[in-house]
Design a protein around this nucleic acid. Sequence first.
DNA 1: ACAAAAGTGTTACGGTTACACCCATGC
DNA 2: GCATGGGTGTAACCGTAACACTTTTGT
Lengths: 229, 229
Amino acid sequence: MIHLYSTEDKVLLAVDCIIFGFDGEDLKILLIKRDFEPEKGKWSLVGGFLKKDENLEHAAVRILKHYTGLDNIYMEQVATFSEVNRDPAERTISTAYYALINIQEHNDKLNKQFSANWFSILEAPSLIFDHNIMVSNAITLLRDRASTKPIGFELLSEKFTMRHLQKLYEAIWGQKIDKRNFINKINALGIVEKLNEKDKESSRKGSFLYQFNAATFDQNSGKQFILKF
Amino acid sequence: MIHLYSTEDKVLLAVDCIIFGFDGEDLKILLIKRDFEPEKGKWSLVGGFLKKDENLEHAAVRILKHYTGLDNIYMEQVATFSEVNRDPAERTISTAYYALINIQEHNDKLNKQFSANWFSILEAPSLIFDHNIMVSNAITLLRDRASTKPIGFELLSEKFTMRHLQKLYEAIWGQKIDKRNFINKINALGIVEKLNEKDKESSRKGSFLYQFNAATFDQNSGKQFILKF
DNA sequence: ACAAAAGTGTTACGGTTACACCCATGC
DNA sequence: GCATGGGTGTAACCGTAACACTTTTGT
């Protein structure tokens, strides 16, 4: 079998992004109302097409910057979706990426500009094409990664309370966790540093703030990061 | 931003397959000597281009059938690789799939026809393009899947001994496992059925044959399949 | 009789889970 | 002084890991 590349079929390649955020209670995804045909007016993931001179990751970064205004976003490829008629307009293959952003840093103006909205993953509307499957795969992958890598911090502000962190993991796994067991385990992992500051927002007593300590984590990296309940 | 699909760049989309087999001792991958430019004569994964009227999975099935003669192969997508210059001949994006086949059923004639060879994952040669990274990602994924899904059986014949099964998992994880602990755990999972036959190949005493029991596994599917040591 | 692999249970250990009360503060 | 969330330790339990000897049979 001899290949002459030039005789092979070419296709459109798109990137779709599942953008996760955390508001203190629920894990959320950012969706936009699609403003062009087909399926204009329906809810959709943010996406765009791959250009000749960039790789998929670069395209994802570009799209994320466009829709969120943010750089340096934590991102990982989910999978590539290629059903022949997934997009009724034209044959398009799409690679999905999930991204973790700090919802506080996200600019509300952009939401108006793009008719975008945050939806709890428990109450998200039905999406165009195969985007529901993409979201579902992304959630599965995120749950796995959150259990084996210290990526949760990407969804929080630099300083956070133990309660924030716990609520985050509860939202990711859809499961209540015992307060004492959670704190014990986090401390055993030695990846957060207790600060001499308190957050007074949530209670009269106030609760201590922590920050992720990459250095400590790297030292411990002999042992595995596993966070399961 | 308004998209007119017709103005977007199109690209070549390829599929590359990491074909795993198990010879009783080592986990192996099937590689071919590439018979066309660029990189003619170098070792490579088997691959091909996506056609207009098929999805990626279909392309992978087609390629596997072509190079191994086999249908109904267990397969899973690994990831999509898109560096701009990954293929020096022309911009090509490639989606990698790993596949598990029973090495016994594989036809040696085809190996001659395609200058193909099985290599232990521990001694595989350097490959063209980014194929080494694909293999490495595939192994990581396989290890994860083997720990959480009963897919190991895809690499064995229908009937196998406990020793075969243990050697397989040892090869996948690159780690010795205690014989008694292994058997205890497999039996606790209740996914294999002991047959009234013995394999006399490996010892004078002979060892009992087992087969995977999908029915039993489905009944147990309330509990999770987890196989780690 | 001996070599070579098969087969078989129990104990110790470590990590996970379950669980309840006092503390500090603002109103 | 009381209501609200913050903070803290221990004991029971369960799964995992470590470990050695007997059995079978072909030569």
